[in-house]
Design a binder for these strands. Structure first.
Lengths: 394, 394
DNA sequence: CATCTTAGTTCAGGGACAAAAACAAGGCCT
DNA sequence: AGGCCTTGTTTTTGTCCCTGAACTAAGATG
């Protein structure tokens, strides 16, 4: 309650600049005139502010559009080459580094395989740092043009400058990945849980687009969720909100790798699904899952039921506008069984919140984690686009 | 994404005024000098702003405090009699109307009993309206001094001006209580779910005080929760967030009065507890529960386990700083069994979020619902304290 | 070529906060 | 008792920002 929260005229400027930039970013090419309408700012303010943005090269002109009988509108857009963002996906089997421009077009990408058992933090950090160098030189982008590096990792990320990670399944307990990376780069770093970065990507560029209250669930080896409240990711007090996979849906039920019992993940995590189906995997889980789905085994129906219970709990507790199902297991299930998933969710939800929720599939592929990580950089850019220049010198 | 969100200099004024007023309200008697420190505003701004507030009689002086060797500080405080708020608790067995001053001291109160089966909306509305008249005349307060009326009701309240209510257990389905009340009063109305108003009360004046991320759970006949994110109640897209009682903890488990199976309420709602204990109630649930607790029956341990699972789900999903257990059942359980509740929660939570959460008992008594309803009015007052006067005339 | 229409820019005016200076009110020392 | 010091509060001055209105730009129309 004691955080200073005063506002001064400068905050207005910064805030309005962010509003303008967001409008420009999400509406694509737009005229100044339309910007006054959609931001609510006066024409004068839009004019001076766009002039600033143009002179800083953050915004560029993008052709004209004739108006019926008057001066044509000049279209403006965010300059996709004003800066670049690096997105990193640290997963159980690989480290993937991507370079994105401001429009989140992937310009370069590099993968490093990890041997499943070997997750030496130093090695991962070296992969990331060399990956950044590789994608930059591949794309011909210099480090000064990079606005920051976003990293999506498994497990819980402590808030704070060091990016300390706790990932039991990964063998990391208190690994300061942020600090390790800091030794090799001076670029701004953003470290977040991979389920959250994927959620961020679906929210901004995928099926969650435009939703203000939403949940993006990730079904894969692990099960997680991103809770979006008022348009931004809800993180809780210590950044671990969204551990949906370890909420209990059967008190005292199946044991889970987290040590608990009856966790959702212990029913609909890929290992749990295969285990319940009696499949001993030969390593290719995607094929295995496809086989189970094709088998019409009762395990499929059970899985949908458990998933429906888990989703219904989100519906009742969070009352989201939209639930996006992502992760490769989620996509594979959803592609054929979305109506059944909806039915199972409805059966376990209260009527009013269920009616307010639409359940959809994620649209982004396997690169969503890296894309979302890069989006952390973009978000920062849109909120605080560059520090104000020294106006007297301009 | 298209909502106009521009800011102008006037917004700064309003915002800073709200910041100042909140600081004054929550810190009690405070000098202008301390206000500059705790709001971050400059002394000049605090001075002019307090002068305004003093002339409007919103703030009054509250004595002096000597400083070591200098001019003594003049203490300021919010004038508790500047205005009043009405809080209404509509429950299954009664309608309670309370009048509170700005410090939330109850000045008058009146109860109307409801026959359990008879919940005619018109009758309830008449009770509320006549209750308002009664408390005002009892306390000698005129309607002009009342800043608004807050109403806490069971069930889900639709967002919108009519205050439409869906309360299955109450026999109300789409009752526009707000519109019914609007016919009898022109005061500002705020209608919200009773579990949420109770949560609001605990958050502002009870055990949740100062928490920014918290969950306040209500255990009574029904089971509900208030989720607090970033200091404010999270409502979800259609205001029904927090239906914790109908999240499933045993897929396919005990039938619940909501029509579902395995709901938390079907295990730890008072009726469920008594049912599981094999008690056939003679009408006094509080005594019945006390008897069960005294009996050392295994039902008690089971109840704690189920409650622990429910709380752990909140810990994992929401990652709150604090969980407050309220409602009469919650208090009765917690008074003797809080350590066991904590243990059961820990057993079902992930270590990191559990370590970040403290589980405490609610502090406010049975009037918390009405108090919280009045707090809705207070919140509005603190955020937008009066429309700005015509400055030229002053 | 004059007029109309729409788009965008410039400028005066007023509101808001910060920093600094001035003022106020008491204690302390000589 | 009077000057000096310390602390609290108010006034003055300056800078920043937004808006509304006047103004310029650029094309269409007849």
């Amino acid at each position: 309650m004691a955080r200073p929260q005063r506002r001064t005229v400068r905050d207005i400027r910064r805030g309005n600049r962010a509003v303008l930039l967001r409008a420009l970013y999400f509406s694509g090419p737009t005229s100044r005139n339309d910007l006054t309408a959609c931001t609510g700012l006066s024409a004068a303010t839009v004019s001076t502010m766009t002039a600033d943005l143009l002179s800083e090269n953050i915004v560029v002109e993008a052709g004209q559009v004739e108006s019926d009988g008057g001066r044509p509108r000049v279209l403006l857009r965010v300059n996709p080459e004003y800066g670049f963002a690096v997105g990193v996906d640290v997963a159980e089997t690989h480290v993937r580094v991507g370079l994105f421009d401001l429009e989140m077009t992937e310009r370069a990408k590099v993968d490093y395989m990890l041997r499943p058992a070997r997750h030496d933090p130093e090695l991962v950090a070296r992969h990331i740092l060399s990956g950044v160098e590789v994608v930059l030189s591949d794309a011909g982008v210099s480090p000064e043009q990079v606005l920051g590096i976003g990293v999506g990792v498994p497990g819980i990320v402590e808030p704070g400058a060091d990016g300390v990670i706790h990932a039991k399944t990964f063998g990391w307990d208190g690994v300061p990945l942020g600090a390790l990376l800091r030794r090799g780069t001076s670029l701004p770093l953003y470290v977040d849980n991979g389920a959250k970065t994927m959620g961020q990507a679906e929210l901004w560029f995928g099926s969650g687009r435009g939703a203000s209250e939403a949940v993006i669930v990730l079904l894969g080896v692990g099960v997680g969720a991103t809770i979006v409240a008022d348009g931004t990711t809800f993180r809780g007090v210590s950044s671990s909100a969204g551990e949906w996979g370890h909420t209990k849906i059967v008190a005292g039920g199946r044991p889970c790798r987290c040590g608990g019992r009856g966790c959702l993940e212990a029913y609909i995590g890929i290992e749990a699904i295969l285990d319940r189906a009696g499949v001993t995997s030969r390593g290719n889980w995607e094929e295995d899952l496809a086989a189970v789905l094709a088998s019409k085994s009762p395990v499929v129906e059970e899985t949908i039921t458990y998933l429906g219970v888990g989703l219904a709990n989100l519906v009742n507790l969070i009352n989201p506008e939209k639930i996006v199902i992502g992760g490769w297991v989620g996509i594979q299930l959803g592609e054929s069984l979305l109506p059944e998933i909806r039915r199972a969710t409805a059966a376990n939800s209260l009527a009013e919140p269920y009616a307010a929720t639409s359940i959809v599939l994620g649209r982004l592929g396997p690169d969503a984690v890296a894309l979302g990580a890069a989006t952390l950089v973009l978000e920062e850019f849109l909120n605080a686009p560059q520090v104000a220049r020294i106006t007297a010198a301009g």
